[in-house]
Simulated assay, not measured.
Amino acid sequence: MSERDGIDQLADREANVILSPPETIGRGFMAYERYEVSLRRDGEPPLLQQRDVLRASKVAAVIPVDLARDAVVLIRQFRLPAHLATGRGDMVEIVAGRVDPHETATEAARRECIEEIGVAPDRVVELYSVLPTPGITDEQIVFFVGHVDSSSVLQRAGLAEEDEDTEPFVVSIEDALAALDRGAFANALLVSAMQWLALNRARLQEYFSRAA
């Protein structure tokens, strides 16, 4: 195997697949759809599957950082699925929300900061994206780092028309990374964001300089 083959083996790629039209089997805040899948592999008969998908679309997630105070802004918010899974539904999170059809992910990142912590970042830099649960939903999370003045963060925030209630708070980056190390929180977006912050803390000024 060549080095190029090894690199390609580690990358996601397009699938040779035929999908049926979606059958809507449930609809609430999001649609729940069923597909008949025919997955083709070279030299093998098609693999037939039935798969259900929660259509959740794209989400912008933001790590709001205050360089002057060496701090990060997090939020606390109740999540029913977490309560059902672990009994600890009062979760620590980063700013995040769905990208509306009329806006870009960057625009959504700025808007969500205003809604969830009460502060608009003066600089926003796109970092990376992940599919947190590709076995059940098409939700794609696009991560950003945003530069904020944490002295202006609200005590309570959230969008009233969405029954959203967030409790923003400011902590030192050191304390946030220590909490990551001891497994204090379970929200996957926060864990991923804090891992990125741990790897790139020394380069934050460089990231923000790109957006200046």
Rank of each mutant, 00 (worst) to 15 (best):
E167P: 01
E164R: 12
L154M: 10
A160L: 13
A160G: 09
E167Q: 12
Y128D: 14
S129G: 09
D122V: 00
H102S: 14
Q155G: 15
V171R: 07
A108D: 07
F143K: 03
V170W: 08
T133L: 15
V130A: 11
T137N: 12
V148L: 02
I141V: 15
H102V: 08
I136W: 09
T133C: 14
E161V: 15
V119N: 04
S129I: 06
E115Q: 05
V170H: 04
F143T: 02
V145E: 01
A120N: 04
Q140L: 15
E161S: 13
V142F: 08
E162R: 15
V148P: 05
E161H: 14
E112A: 02
H147N: 11
A160Y: 12
D163H: 13
V124Q: 01
I136T: 11
S151F: 07
S172Q: 09
E116F: 06
T137R: 14
E161A: 13
D122F: 00
I141A: 03
Y128P: 00
V145F: 01
T137C: 13
S150H: 00
R110D: 07
A120C: 03
A108V: 10
D163G: 10
A160H: 13
D122P: 03
R110F: 11
D122T: 11
V130F: 12
T104D: 06
I141T: 07
T166V: 00
V125E: 07
G118H: 03
E164T: 02
A109C: 04
H102I: 12
V142K: 06
G146Q: 01
L159Q: 15
C113H: 08
H102D: 15
V125W: 02
V148A: 07
D138A: 09
F143M: 07
T137L: 04
E115L: 07
F169Y: 09
D149R: 00
